[in-house]
Simulated scan of single mutants.
Amino acid sequence: MNILLVTEYLPTGKRPVFQGGVQARSFFVSEYLRKINNLRILNSNAGSIEASSISLLRRALFAIRVMLSPIDFKPDIIEASNTTTYFPAFILAKRLQVPVVAWVPDILGKSWLKNFSLPVAVAGYLAERLSMALSFNHFIAMSQATRKKLVNLGVNEKYVTVIYGGVEIAKMNKDRGEKDVRPTIISISRLLKYKRLSDLVRAVAEVKKNHPSVRCLIIGEGPEENNLKVQITKHKLQKNVFLLGNMPHDEAMVRLKRAHLFCLPSVVEGFGLVTVEAMAAGVPFVSAGIPATREITENGKGGLLFEPENVNDLAKKLNMLLDDKILYEKKIQEGLKLAKRYDWAIIAKQTEAVYRKAIASH
């Protein structure tokens, strides 16, 4: 099967650096699919493009390049993987007269207006709404929560298949090694407003009262970095909270395995890949109890859920797992068992099956 994947940015090399779940999913699924298919990737040359006003022009130029791109082979199927790529990939598919699938990690909806600068918010909101109204041959939703949002937008549910994100089970179960000496909480996330990492910093200030040596590692980059630095200084956590920036995925996974807890306070997630990676690594999580996280963890298997945006509840749940060794061990075993269902090899096969279905019905 000839597959053309249209994605805005995709890390390359033996040690890829992921800046979000879209990149990770596109990378791993493409790696598996190319083993038995002829797969080509059409993506931006940039390693990433921040959601800033100036980025709108670069994204527009990329969209034009996709629509007018000379393709040196005839794909059997085209997949578009985010808001920037949906419309141009759809136009390219019509031009080539081939079926096109939209992979949808999440529908931000009004969250665009709450969490981004006005030009980006308006452009993102309109692009998302208009793209989801296009007659794609099929939609792949990353969770049931995302599927519901698609159906609420008017997408016929018979054209929506849920395929979860995944994890490299064998690698994550291997060489878990020793834990850090200090009680360590880790978060791996883009530093965006809706990720609510400032809530984690404030919660660490509370946890420090019971665990003075607690350490919090935040891996990722983004526009919230300066705000986080202010919060760290304000709460006198310079020796407790560390912003490590981006790093290769394999290095981030080593850090994850050595940590005692993983935390994702985000209030907007279509899936939450790192939560599954944490479970597979035997690291209990403390995450905001939003619909997608409740879904993929089956209401908290492998960790504890806290009330979104409630710093006191977050600190309470972190302390519970640090203090209760029986509960901690129970959550490790729950996570290891649950994570087995999220395997990239299985997910790639499910994705390939959707492609074949779309081709057959075109």
Rank of each mutant, 00 (worst) to 15 (best):
Leu153Met: 15
Met132Arg: 10
Lys239Gln: 15
Leu130Tyr: 11
Gly47Trp: 10
Ile91Pro: 11
Phe306Gly: 03
Ala141Gly: 06
Tyr125Trp: 13
Ala145Ile: 03
Gly20Asp: 03
Phe73His: 06
Val155Ala: 08
Leu92Val: 06
Tyr125Gly: 10
Leu304Cys: 06
Phe136Leu: 00
Pro308Val: 11
Arg65Pro: 00
Ile71Glu: 00
Pro11Val: 09
Val155Phe: 01
Ser48Phe: 15
Lys35Thr: 05
Lys94Met: 07
His249Arg: 14
Asn82Glu: 10
Lys114Trp: 04
Asn38Thr: 12
Phe285Thr: 09
Lys340Glu: 15
Tyr125Ile: 04
Leu338His: 09
Arg40Lys: 15
His211Asp: 10
Ala141Lys: 02
Lys257Phe: 11
Leu237Met: 09
Lys357Ile: 11
Ala348Tyr: 03
Trp344Arg: 07
Arg341Ala: 13
Lys239Val: 09
Leu217Arg: 15
Phe136Lys: 01
Asn173Gln: 15
Leu321Gln: 00
Arg202Lys: 14
Ile346Ala: 15
Glu79Ser: 08
Val160Asn: 04
Tyr164Pro: 01
Arg95Val: 02
Thr297Glu: 01
Gly272Val: 05
Phe28Lys: 09
Ile232Gly: 01
Arg190Ala: 13
Leu10Gln: 05
Glu309Leu: 14
Phe62Pro: 02
Gln23Tyr: 03
Ala315Asp: 10
Arg190Gly: 14
Ile91Phe: 13
Ala80Asp: 02
Leu243Cys: 05
Gly47Pro: 12
Ser143Thr: 04
